[in-house]
């Protein structure tokens, strides 16, 4: 490497490091200060907590005055159930649309793709009415149904691209082998769609976990709040209690960051796999 090349590469790294600091700095700041006593939060916000400044008082408050564990389990249930259904129904529909030629298949694909671009949120008025009349308002079922409907179009789109990448010969071989069509999907195609899960997750599952709108309009009691809504309401209530606010924010941030760091390789591979261009 020549001196000039080294200088160039150094400047590239400087820019990237600077942006990285900008990207994680605020998150670190919040998480770091959530473990400190109030005086240290204001006295030296940029310092790591040490023996004298360490405190879990904010976390204690959050556990005491909110149903944070209920929120977690609600978010987990809603996200996991929605994810399972989005993947299952999405993959099945994507398979039928890519594999079978039938009259109206193009029209159906177009119909399904409306939902990619038009936000389902705009139908909220009617969704609330429907859920009310079906007795589903303030239930997790209502959230799951809406999220599945919201996630399906994008997941069908992504999964279709993945299914097209599965060699056609494989399906033909299975047909020559006498494998029934449903088994071809479940035993040959579906297992090969595993790499698509990460891509679908980024585009449909993460928004579900993070959503504020539908919990806000469809759930009204603490027992059905999700983390995002629960924390949002907690923050509004305890806005002046900095320990609690920072702790609540950190509790919303940390699980996501943890899962993200564990899965980041797959998630990013899924994003850059070329399936979404």
């Amino acid at each position: 490497m020549t001196a000039e090349q080294r200088a160039k590469s150094l400047s590239v790294h400087l820019v990237l490091i600077a942006y990285s600091v900008l990207a994680v700095g605020p998150i670190l700041l919040v998480v770091m200060n959530s473990f400190k006593v109030r005086s240290a939060i204001f006295g030296s916000p940029l310092a790591l907590p040490d023996a004298t400044t360490f405190s879990l008082v904010g976390y204690e408050k959050v556990f005491r005055s909110s149903h944070i564990l209920t929120y977690y389990s609600n978010s987990l249930i809603v996200t996991l159930v929605s994810m399972a259904l989005v993947l299952l129904f999405g993959a099945m529909a994507a398979w039928a649309l890519t594999e079978y030629r039938f009259r109206g298949s193009t029209a159906l694909a177009l119909f399904l793709s409306i939902g990619i671009m038009v936000p389902i949120r705009l139908g909220s008025v009617a969704i609330l009415n429907m859920m009310r009349s079906a007795g589903l308002n303030d239930t997790l079922t209502a959230l799951v149904l809406v999220y599945v409907a919201q996630g399906l179009p994008m997941s069908i789109f992504i999964l279709s691209e993945f299914i097209q990448q599965i060699p056609k010969d494989l399906r033909d071989a299975a047909r020559c082998d006498g494998v029934p069509e449903t088994r071809i999907f479940f035993e040959v195609v579906a297992p090969l769609l595993r790499p698509a899960i990460a891509t679908v997750a980024v585009f449909t599952i993460v928004p579900i976990w993070n959503d504020l709108w539908f919990p806000l309009i469809l759930t009204s009691s603490d027992s059905t709040h999700t983390v995002t809504l629960g924390v949002q309401q907690f923050l509004g209530q305890y806005i002046t209690d900095w320990n609690s606010v920072l702790a609540a924010l950190s509790m919303a941030i940390l699980p996501v960051v943890l899962i993200y760091v564990i899965l980041s390789r797959q998630l990013i591979a899924g994003l850059t796999s070329g399936a979404v261009k």
Binding site: D169, L170, D172, A173, C176, L192
Partner: peptide, 11 residues
């Protein structure tokens, strides 16, 4: 049938 790509089930 024996396919050009062999079409073995990878899993």
């Amino acid at each position: 049938m024996v396919f050009q790509s062999y079409a073995l089930y990878p899993h």
